[in-house]
Simulated scan of single mutants.
Amino acid sequence: MTTEMELRGARVRYGPLEALHGLDLPVPAGTVTVLTGRNGAGRTTALRALAGTVRLSAGRVLWRGEDVTALPPHERARRGLCFVPDRGAVYEGLTVAENLALAGPAAPVPYPALVPLLPRTAGTLSGGERRMLAVSRALLRPARVVLVDEAALGMAPPVAARTYALLAALATETGAAVLLAEQRVPDGLPPGTLLHRLRRGTRVFSGEAAEEHRPAA
């Protein structure tokens, strides 16, 4: 299993508060990895550290072994990183069609519910519709690393299930490293999904998602 990207000894501070306490986090290619934990556990900060939207106070960000800690977010994006934050992930003043066009050449829209909304501006969509649009842009853009914070936020259960199936297919079919930040492990992810549970900026469990609640022998 090739590690596409990783945090090594990562520390992030927000003023006097340290959000990550020397976190080691591998993100392997061709695999879905899920970060779980309560609010404040460091899930979002870990994604932002990989994306380069927050600075490390200590530690390193590696990409295939190369130190990219000092590389700005737009350069990481050019290398093939796609970050879908939990908020502000679409261009509200553009139409749905224009948002999708930014992801690359024309391709089938991943969510049929978005097709009749193509002429509408993204700012007029519901929360779940915006989330579909944000995730669609990640699915349509050729990427080596895909980071998604709260992938199914505001979605109805059937749409959420489709979202996780699409993200799993992205990893297995294209070899992308897919990292999701979630409060709990979503249903429907494939066998072999990796789980890292965070607590107060440190990793307290790592393994396959199916192992976390497996009774001890």
Rank of each mutant, 00 (worst) to 15 (best):
E182F: 06
G188W: 06
L20H: 00
R214I: 01
H196P: 00
E6S: 14
E212K: 00
T2Y: 00
R130S: 09
T3H: 00
T163L: 12
D149F: 08
A176W: 06
L114K: 10
T31P: 07
A210S: 14
R78E: 12
E173F: 06
A49E: 05
E129W: 04
P186T: 05
L133S: 01
T202C: 07
G37Q: 03
Y164P: 06
D67Q: 05
A134V: 11
G88W: 10
A165I: 03
R13M: 03
S57N: 01
P85S: 10
A103Q: 11
R64A: 13
L125F: 07
G80M: 08
D24A: 02
A122V: 06
A19H: 04
Y111V: 04
A113E: 15
R130N: 03
R141L: 04
F205Q: 05
T44I: 09
A181C: 08
T36R: 14
E4R: 14
E98P: 02
L17S: 08
S136V: 14
M5V: 15
P157V: 08
L180S: 05
E18C: 07
G80H: 11
L25R: 04
A176S: 15
M155L: 15
G104K: 04
T53H: 02
P190L: 13
T2H: 11
T121R: 15
G175I: 10
A216F: 14
S136H: 13
L81W: 01
M155C: 06
P190M: 15
A152P: 09
G123H: 09
T44F: 09
L140H: 02
A210M: 01
L180K: 02
R200E: 13
S126D: 07
R199C: 02
H74V: 11
E129A: 07
V204G: 01
L153S: 14
R60E: 15
P112M: 07
A216R: 12
G127F: 05
L153T: 01
R38M: 05
G175Y: 11
A89K: 04
L140S: 14
A209T: 11
E211C: 03
A151E: 08
P72S: 12
P110F: 05
P112L: 00
